[in-house]
Amino acid sequence: ASMNIGFSQLSMLPHLADLVSYSIQKVIGFAKMIPGFRDLAADDQIVLLKSSAIEVIMLRSNQSFTLEDMTWTCGSDDFKYRISDVTQAGHNMDLLEPLVKFQVGLKKLNLHEEEHVLLMAICILSPDRPGVQDTALVESLQDRLSEILQSYIRCRHPGPGSRLLYAKMIQKLTDLRSLNEEHSRQYRCLSFQPQHSMQLTPLVLEVFGNEIS
């Protein structure tokens, strides 16, 4: 009964909407520190952020993801996010099953923090996002980050863990594209229902789209 009540009212939606809204602000702050990002036209900066925000949040959240119990444990056990918390925010297993699989795979790469940060920057500076105008400039910035990442792995990532590591990291970016699409599909359903879209934040509505407007 409690599950049904939780589900129908999406009891976790307000909290997760706030968490995602806060995270989007952090992604924007991070993007502004990427060399060259601020030199892009404002419209391209906006296109890149809107299309990559959810992917960077999924990447960033891997730090708190734990293989022990397949949850995002942020600090003490009071701040532990389980799959059930995300379903009670309106998402279903079509997203969560591949998302957990993605988190497990990423965790097992045991990335250095430098590699993790570079991967998020490379994810943001993807020239193939729909609506990008100056794809050549975005591509040149991404290429530079990719070269830095490959050099870092060669010089600083010793031992067996580094074998094919760059290729595995790029594969994670591909996985994120399909997670992004599934998230968008489920978000669209959610945002069509006024009783749920009213619980989202202005920034979430702006970044993920506000069907109502």
């Binding site: 602000q25 924007i28 702050g29 502004k32 404002a42 900066q45 906006i46 952020l49 809107k50 202005p202 920034l203 702006e206 970044v207």
Partner: peptide, 18 residues
């Protein structure tokens, strides 16, 4: 209309992060 679009994103991009 275009200008009004993404007003929050533009603000967060332009504001000076401490």
């Amino acid at each position: 209309k275009k200008k009004e679009n993404n007003a929050l994103l533009r603000y967060l991009l332009d504001k000076d992060d401490v």
